[in-house]
Nucleic acid binder design. Structure first.
Lengths: 263, 263
DNA sequence: GCCTAGGTCCCGTGT
DNA sequence: ACACGGGGCCTAGGC
């Protein structure tokens, strides 16, 4: 059991806050600042954000996010490789510098007014599991290749082809090799071209033209055009059907796990 | 001039907080919650996040972010189309439901303990400008085609070729058409193939083979291999040089604008 | 270190 | 509404 450990600063002067923030950042605490600021960024691109009220979050690994009151995306940021400095410049304000190497990028946040600062050390060991990713789709199809077509024998998954990896590598009933590319969402022309590259590289390396099959729940018009033009095949897959199989598989696994741990 | 308008709740019971949050969300205030929670997501994919201390931000357009103490990305989220409900379930906790249509997605955050709630209305009208996007690179090169090569005459930008758009369409000094594809960052094989598609479509539509030039600050080995193999050209571009030209252009524009507004 | 590929990608633009 | 492509994409995995 853990307890959220927080300190809140409100109504302090910028000079006072600078000292507080320096300590917090040195300690790698989580910091949330609400206030009025400008932001400049320069690196792979460059940007300028004029004065306005925002939320700045500095995470415990020094990732920094500047959030406006609307929208999913931070307007400016620095990922967790950033080094962060806090300074107070009279007649300018409270200045945050976040610098990142590779790629070299500079972020400067200048607060002219701060309404609130929250500092804390969050304890978060909770496990995170994501389901129904492309990896899951691939595993289910590899375990149930009859969904793709009859008498398909799976030889491998994520097989290296040239510099990439084909999702499923198989042999059909006539003895021809099959390269399968999967998309969890609508397949685009890019996906068709990706598959085509694998087919071409395989052909050159093995002197044999494999079948190429793109599998997705739906296809963009350009994907269909490209597939047809390049002599590739495609199959619609019903995601709900796959997820049913997935659930069965998971419950089986859980049962087995329970069996062994309870023993 | 604006003032950050904030309320802070700390030490209140979950039942008390539910009422506060209901009002805040109805008013479309910004809400920040720090506390211990679990999160479930189901939609295009599905995920489960076990108990831990996190920061949840609900923005003024109902975007919702769940941030762990580390990393750039939210672990769970709902973009700004979300509808959010707050309820209190005895012996469970404070429950946030965020539902989104198209794609249909469900997010549930259950707080078992809340350390702090911040509610406010942020005022943020500050302009945001991004520089050195691909669009800027394209405009600078279109205005200064001598950077690409001598006596190049630009006929258009974003010219439709088949189903895509070539960045710059030009005529060289020998009267041959040129298709230019730009990349702001390291060009990959994908970029080379994209250019090749344009060249091929143009050839079929006009019965004339145009030159294809890929322009980027650097090239992946696979990009160079592909370019050579497909008979395409490439040029290195110095982003700093372009950046200088960009600044000049911007300052010229500003001067003109100042001239007209002052008149 | 680079490159390849996925992501609940998000987001803007165009049809 | 959907399709298409960019993004300071970020992040994970392989070599």
């Amino acid at each position: 059991m853990s307890y959220v450990n927080l300190k809140v600063y409100s109504g302090d002067s910028l000079e006072e806050l600078v000292e507080v923030l320096k300590i917090a950042i040195a300690r790698r605490s989580l910091v949330i600042i609400l206030g009025e600021c400008r932001v400049d960024y320069e690196g792979r691109a460059a940007s300028r954000l004029e004065l306005g009220e925002r939320v700045v979050i500095i995470k415990q690994d020094s990732a920094l996010l500047v959030h406006r009151p609307h929208g999913y995306s931070p307007v400016n940021w620095q990922p967790s490789t950033a080094i962060i400095e806090v300074t107070f410049k009279p007649s300018v304000g409270l200045v945050l510098h976040a610098v990142r190497d590779r790629p070299r990028e500079y972020l400067t946040v200048v607060f002219v007014r701060v309404g609130l600062v929250v500092i804390g050390e969050l304890v978060d060991q909770g496990g995170f599991t994501m389901y129904l990713e492309e990896r899951d789709m691939r595993d289910i199809l590899a375990e149930n290749p009859w969904i793709i077509e009859e008498d398909l024998r799976v030889l491998g998954v994520e097989k290296p082809i040239g510099e990439g990896y084909v999702d499923i590598y198989a042999l059909d009933k006539s003895g021809r090799h099959v390269l399968v590319e999967l998309k969890r969402i609508t397949a685009t022309r890019e996906a068709a071209l990706q598959l085509y590259r694998y087919v071409e590289v395989y052909r050159k390396e093995h002197g044999e033209t494999p079948r190429g099959i793109l599998i997705a729940p739906s296809f963009a018009p350009t994907a269909l055009e490209t597939l047809t033009r390049l002599g590739l095949e495609y199959r619609y897959v019903d995601l709900k059907r796959l997820w049913e199989l997935f659930k069965k598989r998971e419950s089986k696994r859980v049962s087995l796990q329970e069996f062994f741990t309870k023993k």
